[in-house]
């Protein structure tokens, strides 16, 4: 464990990714707690450019973009995190059960998984979002999560079906372990690094999926997220009117948040797959 930590901390990709992500996280979590402004509060006129009063200007309703950016970043990270947890949870459960049980159970679960893979996730996402009326940030995360687990399930299944033939699994079975115990205690620990990396990727994908949905107007209600900000900017033609401050900051934050998570993932990949390590 100690060795892994040293390797992780030595990985430049991981460190850059972690620093960027922590910066974004602090901005989105601490920001809203220290500011006295409300993201829906009007502080100026329509699309005021950056000034001392509003350092990133105002949006179409004269609200402070900087305040929105703090709240929006927090909301987007929350949605991405929930999506990551849900997707990883479902994917690992289905993949592990299918891979471990084999036979009919495997065929059934993987059948469902493969069908879901062939249907474009965005279509399911849009239909689900329309169907569900009250969309809080958490509900958004759950919706995104339950449409993005299939790839994780496939990978986990493949690893599980190879791990289950190991002798320590047999030994645990003849010690009276139940199937659930075998999966949790004898199989999953060996996939921990993989599962953690899959979670990071799902987290990152969750953030961008939120942006996509919200831009289409299917974002969370009564709150501001990075995607919702883009939706407003789009709706009020911020691009055409040259109000760059209304759309560029959320785009930059989206990019940095998802890119930093990708870097973390790549750094971990180097550590866990020594072949990728540069000598």
């Amino acid at each position: 464990m100690g060795e892994v930590l040293v390797l992780v901390l030595r990985s430049r990709r991981f460190m850059i990714g972690a620093i960027l992500f922590l910066a974004v996280l602090c901005f989105g979590v601490i920001g809203p707690r220290v500011t006295d402004r409300n993201p829906f509060q009007m502080v100026g006129g329509l699309f005021n450019p950056p000034s001392e009063k509003a350092i990133l200007g105002t949006d179409n309703l004269g609200r402070d973009v900087f305040t929105q950016l703090m709240y929006g970043t927090g909301t987007s990270l929350l949605i991405g995190f929930v999506a990551g947890v849900v997707a990883t949870g479902i994917g690992v459960t289905i993949g592990a059960v299918a891979g471990f049980k084999g036979g009919l159970v495997d065929e059934l679960l993987m059948g469902i998984t493969n069908v879901l893979i062939t249907i474009p996730a965005i279509v399911v996402l849009i239909l689900l979002s329309i169907a569900i009326r009250s969309r809080s940030a958490v509900v958004m995360g759950v919706i995104i999560g339950i449409t993005s687990w299939p790839w994780t399930a496939r990978a986990v299944r493949a690893q599980t079906s190879s791990l289950r033939t190991r002798e320590h699994v047999d030994l645990a079975r003849i010690s009276g372990y139940t199937t659930a115990e075998l999966i949790v205690k004898e199989i999953l620990p060996y996939m921990f690094s993989y599962i953690f990396m899959a979670f990071i990727l799902q987290f990152s994908a969750g953030i961008t999926n939120e942006a996509t949905l919200s831009m289409l107007g299917l974002g969370p209600y009564q709150t501001v997220s990075l995607g919702v900000m883009l939706h407003w900017a789009l709706l009020w033609e911020a691009v055409r009117t040259g109000a760059w401050w209304a759309f560029l900051p959320p785009v930059v934050f989206l990019a940095v948040a998802s890119f930093s998570l990708m870097l973390i993932n790549a750094g971990l990949d180097e550590v866990f797959n020594p072949r990728l390590r540069k000598s």
Partner: peptide
């Protein structure tokens, strides 16, 4: 009960 062949893969390294 049983004793298995491979004393390496018979142990869960965790």
């Amino acid at each position: 009960q049983a004793i298995f062949q491979d004393p390496f893969s018979s142990f869960n390294s965790f």
